[in-house]
Design a binder for these strands. Structure first.
Lengths: 294, 294
DNA sequence: TCAATGCTGTGCATTGGTGCACAAGGTGGC
DNA sequence: GCCACCTTGTGCACCAATGCACAGCATTGA
């Protein structure tokens, strides 16, 4: 059976509420002829008269009074929904989902924590995973990406910072295997590397072309695992420069090189970029990034 | 602030529910371009994105999910309302309001009672008052009118029966004042009459032109009061012939005349006439009228 | 009793919404 | 890796819903 048009129900609601076609037309901002036609159409689809017509207006029948009650609550529900949604665009509240590459959680988590503290109505979700979360599927409001500038058409990308990376070994490793003077001695050392030939990080491309595969003694997928392996003395590996500054345990084998730098990008979906919530987080993030170690 | 169109909310609801514009278009029976335009318009009035657009469909944002929940219940409410109203036209239930001229309650009340017994879901309201209840204002489903055939354009009138009226006096009156042989003796008797010069009942017009005003000793507005006055012996008065048959107390002064007959009409508003509830009552009433005394 | 007001109802011109056709792009199966 | 399919998105033609003007009617007040 054919469902009635919701607009016609709203028209009938106003007629039932006000008692006249003219009054309903004025409230709805349409011509009174339109109101009459809506009522006629609605009654035709329902197969019942909703109103008694007379010269002083429309008096609702039982069915019309029934509709009045139902549509009354609908009107209120929609009004609440409308103001809620309108306010939502302006309020910094609700969920904020941030995704990033693995390995910089120690940088982001404090930022997220202080943001949540500043905006207590916000519930922060921080997603990190091997796979890339997709902004266009609504999986996250903000993504932190590394590498070349993202160029998806619906995404807004802004530069955040650069991650400088150097080659490090732990003191325990150097104590056992010594410290290579230059690249010619690399073949006799042990290295820690990412377990992914397709990894496009410039320093890993450099590593794959410089160090023989036989010298790679440990491979891991998780950046945290690789770092931990370096710390444990399993081998020489790449660690973000800012982490080495904090860790007393690491010895610099090769200092960071400009060509190893990985730019970090803030990426948002264009649909969400202009909302106040996202904007608030972006400014908070950029402000926090100013004090990050480099 | 501009309220969103309810149809657009319904469109957005189906998109949020199904996840694709195409699917929503199919369910709604419109072109998918229309769906896109509805969403665009709705988002423009709300000032917020409701969906993330991508190649596999539309993913609702927070606002979209909020709308989904509200509109979901609205959809259910309207579906219930629709089937309720559609069924209401076919079901014999709810209120049935009947109005009639005063004075034939003793005929109608048994009909109403048996009708209610036959259709227990019906709540009967029986309105009698000096003023005429107006069908076009929705004051009653069915009216019993007397006199000339009603000719209001929106009313459906059907003949029901004729009320034959005669001139009667109680035995106590005759015992005291005797019984007039013909109209020439009327001036020396006492009469009971309606207290309304404008009353257009043919027998009262005859009374006003035949009996001098000085002979009218009792006037009342309520037919029951007039009858009671006749029974009490206050004077000679008009009583419906069928009532005289039941009452042993009354003596016929003048027998009913054809020109005094008052036709009774069943009148319904055209908007309600074709509903099953009204039809059921009309057949019930006509059936009962067959066994009425004449 | 008559004029004034406010309501519904309807034919006609118009505008805004709808359907159509096609393009472009992503996804998944073979 | 390629092709088929399904999705969104847009310009154009068209039709239907809308607005307008006027008629008709009931009610109200003088």
């Amino acid at each position: 059976m054919a469902q009635p048009a919701w607009d016609e129900i709203r028209t009938a609601f106003q007629v039932a509420r006000l008692g006249t076609v003219s009054g309903a037309a004025e409230v709805l901002g349409v011509h009174h002829a339109t109101v009459i036609r809506h009522i006629d159409a609605l009654e035709r689809t329902l197969g019942t008269r909703l109103f008694q017509r007379h010269a002083r207006g429309y008096t609702p029948t039982e069915a019309g009074r029934d509709l009045l009650i139902v549509a009354q609550t609908t009107e209120e529900q929609f009004a609440q929904l409308s103001s809620r949604i309108k306010g939502q665009g302006e309020a910094v509240a609700g969920e904020l989902t941030v995704t990033s590459i693995s390995g910089i959680a120690d940088l982001l988590v404090p930022v997220l924590a202080s943001f949540q503290e500043q905006y207590p109505l916000v519930q922060v979700r921080f997603l990190t995973d091997m796979r890339v979360f997709r902004l266009d599927y609504g999986e996250a409001h903000v993504a932190i990406r590394a590498g070349a500038a993202p160029e998806e058409p619906d995404n807004v990308a802004q530069p955040l910072t650069h991650i400088r990376t150097g080659l490090y070994a732990s003191k325990s490793y150097v104590a056992r295997h010594g410290q290579p003077k230059d690249e010619s001695e690399f073949a006799n050392h042990r290295f820690v590397c990412v377990d992914n030939e397709a990894n496009r990080a410039p320093f890993y491309r450099w590593l794959r072309s410089t160090v023989p595969a036989s010298a790679i003694s440990f491979r891991g997928t998780e950046p945290a695992a690789i770092e931990e392996a370096v710390h444990q003395g399993t081998g020489i590996g790449f660690v973000a420069a800012y982490k080495q500054k904090v860790a007393e345990n690491l010895i610099e084998i090769l200092p960071p090189r400009p060509e190893w730098d990985a730019p970090l990008w803030i990426v948002t979906h264009v649909d969400l970029h202009r909302t106040r919530k996202v904007q608030a987080f972006l400014t908070h993030l950029k402000e926090a990034a100013k004090s990050w170690p480099v």
